[in-house]
């Protein structure tokens, strides 16, 4: 097992952990963090697997950089929405829609 492959497996582990957190956790911020964990895991898999095969690969590094930019944008959007949501409803989790029958 090369270190690259180790990275890849760690990435997979992170992905699964993140996925579990995403499903199991309630608080929106935690969910967002779990998503970031999944993202980082994916990037590790991407780099690890590719470099395991081909050696140092500039292409995947470029891809991961792009991926990180996308992830930052998504996280930022998530944060804005969560903040605004908290502001409006005073809640920090997506509770089951119990009271959405009000108003037109």
């Amino acid at each position: 097992m090369t270190p690259h492959l180790l990275y890849a497996f760690t990435g997979l582990l992170l992905f699964v952990t993140g996925l579990f957190g995403m499903i199991a956790l309630d608080h929106l911020l935690r969910k967002l963090l779990a998503l970031n964990l999944m993202g980082s895991g994916t990037f590790l898999v991407l780099v690890g697997l590719a470099q395991h095969r081909n050696g140092v690969d500039p292409v995947v590094q470029a891809l991961v950089l792009t991926g990180i930019v996308v992830a930052i944008a998504a996280t930022a959007l998530g944060l804005v929405l969560i903040r605004r949501y908290y502001h409006l409803s005073g809640r920090s989790s997506l509770e089951p829609d119990t009271n959405d029958e009000a108003g037109p």
Partner: peptide, 11 residues
Amino acid sequence: DALRASLRYLL
């Protein structure tokens, strides 16, 4: 409600 829907959508 719209924000809740959009957050769920985002996730």
